[in-house]
Write a protein that binds this DNA or RNA. Structure first.
Lengths: 205, 205
DNA sequence: ACTTTTGCTTAACGCTGTTAAATGATTTAA
DNA sequence: TTAAATCATTTAACAGCGTTAAGCAAAAGT
């Protein structure tokens, strides 16, 4: 029964269409304009069939969030692959994080609750959300270059990086108005600052 | 006609009750649970009378946002008054900012779009939203202690502070789970780091 | 040819923000 | 004192929301 597979393929396509349509609406009109009926309009069905593909609206948001983490993860990986020195890798990765946020503003919003909430506990329901931490941790450990770095030591450094970069990004999404030059300066200063602090601690140990 | 004043007083009270009720509901059930009918229930009226005090729901959010900025402004002022050295003032003020965010989590959310949006452009419609910048700028300029600090120089420093502190706060509101010790360390490290960088630039000029 | 399943729509429920009309009390004017 | 006007408040309604149940027509299975 090859028709079974054909039908499955069509279903997969519709599922993907729902996600694409959602993202399209959000990009055009913002998160608050996203509704089940609008999604149905775009995919040329009526609202109830969406529930054959997703349990509810939140499940759509969750899946978009997952998509976001997959893209971010890939971007981080590519950024890292372009360099050999851990310090350079780390810098490139945080720049990639920054670029991801503006290339995929709407995804970033739902991933990290900027003017928007996906409401469920991401860490618990979406393993992919841990991926940035894992990827950055690897490089931070390499950069630290000591025998047994505590989980806490690595976490602290990641947390420091993340705070300033996420802060910068969410402020920019919220109140666009800071110059590119100002952003570049704060971003690179912060990143290089933390990198240096890691390297210094390495020497002093 | 003293009754005119009595009536006005009652109206003011009802207006305040609407805001209090809103905040109460949000604190108990979160922002997404806030509805006009629920507010009406709490103040023991029906929904339409709310529109005699506020143009729409957004106007209520905006007024709560304004309240938030007034409290924050007062907190910052008090923190500053407790010290004489600009460096100490700055540190105390950012700590006060941090404390405000958790003592008034719901207000902080609507003020800075954490899992929530008030939707309108704050800077344009709410002058009070500029108050933190003004207050911090004063102290930053004092700390810089040079003849003619550019607006851009001050802004850059404020922006650096703000990014890391806001980043830290919004991550904590989003995914509560980092230890108090970790937060304290990142927060004070960041604040002291920026303060030192300002002081160093002062010496080198 | 008859029954079951599938794919999809229509209709409905209870909720939302918001507005218009109706009601009833209070104040003002004659 | 009574009639008119104003005020405060409610009820009813509209359009839209997420979501579910019922219905229907075409396809598939027997």
């Amino acid at each position: 029964m090859a028709s079974k597979e054909r039908i499955q393929r069509l279903k997969d396509e519709t599922r993907a269409n729902i996600l694409d349509a959602s993202l399209q609406i959000v990009k055009e009109e913002g998160w608050q304009a996203l509704s089940m009926r609008k999604i149905a309009d775009v995919i040329e069905y009526t609202a109830p069939i969406i529930y054959e593909y997703f349990a509810n609206k939140e499940a759509i948001l969750l899946e978009l969030t997952r998509r976001g983490f997959l893209i971010l993860s890939k971007d981080l990986q590519e950024a890292r692959a372009k360099h050999r020195l851990p310090a350079k890798q780390l810098e490139a990765m945080w720049l990639a994080y920054w670029n991801f946020a503006f290339a995929n503003k709407e995804l970033y919003q739902v991933m990290f609750g900027v003017e928007m909430n996906c409401c469920c506990d991401l860490v618990a329901t979406l393993p992919e959300s841990e991926s940035p931490y894992t990827q950055f941790s690897e490089v931070i450990i390499e950069l630290m270059d000591i025998e047994n770095p505590t989980k806490d030591m690595v976490c602290l450094k990641y947390y420091t990086f993340w705070s300033v970069v996420h802060g910068l990004i969410s402020i920019n999404i919220l109140r666009r108005g800071y110059s590119d030059e100002m952003n570049r300066q704060v971003l690179t200063d912060a990143i290089c600052g933390v990198i240096k602090s890691i390297e210094q601690e390495k020497v002093s140990v």
